[in-house]
Simulated scan of single mutants.
Amino acid sequence: MKNRTSSIIVGGLIILAILGIFNSISSNPINFLKGVAVFVLMSVVIYFVVRKLSNSGPQSKEQRAFLKAAKKSKKRLQQKNGVSQAKNSSHGTLTTLKKNIKTNKKPSAHLTVIEGKKSKKKNRASL
């Protein structure tokens, strides 16, 4: 019952607002447009003020530092990729190209197997 009365009240307010907008447009459209422009302008100003005030905390400093580090990392990766592409695109003999490819490859990681006590069985008490 309570939800029904609140939905009726909200619906009535919406209908009254729509009627008021149509009445304002029909009676004085220039004044209506000025009011809408002032509303939009004030909303934008309030949005930027709130955004500026909320970004002044320590959390935003950490965020700025993270973004700065991300830009540096991205720039470094682009430079690294640009250098390798420049080497591969240079005109040279086949032996120099093979030599460059061999020097750029990293050696594969050698994995070793650690021998454990696999053959020993656990002593379990039988119940």
Rank of each mutant, 00 (worst) to 15 (best):
S26C: 07
E115P: 00
K122Q: 04
V10A: 01
T96D: 09
N123H: 03
L67T: 06
K71F: 14
G12T: 11
S7F: 01
F48R: 05
I14P: 00
V50Q: 04
S119K: 01
N28P: 14
V40G: 01
I21A: 11
V49L: 07
K102W: 12
T96R: 06
Q78N: 03
F48G: 10
Q78K: 14
I15M: 00
G35P: 02
V36K: 08
L94A: 08
V113M: 05
I30S: 15
I21P: 07
A86T: 03
K75C: 03
T96C: 06
A17L: 14
K117I: 07
I101W: 03
Q85H: 01
F22T: 12
L67R: 14
F22Y: 03
G35E: 09
I14C: 04
K2Q: 12
A37W: 13
S27R: 10
Q78R: 02
S90C: 03
G12M: 03
R51E: 08
A109M: 11
K102S: 15
S43E: 01
K121A: 01
M42D: 04
S90M: 12
K105R: 08
K106E: 14
I9W: 05
L33N: 11
F66W: 13
V10G: 00
S6K: 13
I25W: 15
R124D: 01
K87C: 01
K52Y: 01
I46P: 00
E115Y: 12
L13R: 00
S24K: 06
L67P: 05
N81L: 08
G116K: 08
K106S: 12
Q79L: 09
K80P: 01
T112I: 15
G12N: 05
S27K: 08
V38C: 01
R4Y: 10
K68E: 12
A70D: 14
T103N: 07
A37S: 06
P107K: 07
A65E: 11
G12H: 04
N55T: 04
N100K: 06
R64A: 10
S60A: 15
K118F: 09
S73L: 14
I18T: 09
K80D: 13
M1P: 12
V50T: 15
T5E: 08
T103M: 15
V38H: 04
K61P: 00
R64Y: 05
L97M: 12
P29A: 06
G92I: 10
S108E: 13
S108Y: 10
V83C: 00
S7T: 12
Y47L: 04
K34D: 08
K87H: 13
K34E: 15
Q63C: 10
G57M: 07
L77Y: 05
G35R: 08
K122R: 11
E115S: 10
N123Q: 12
N81G: 02
L33S: 14
I8Q: 03
I15T: 11
L77S: 02
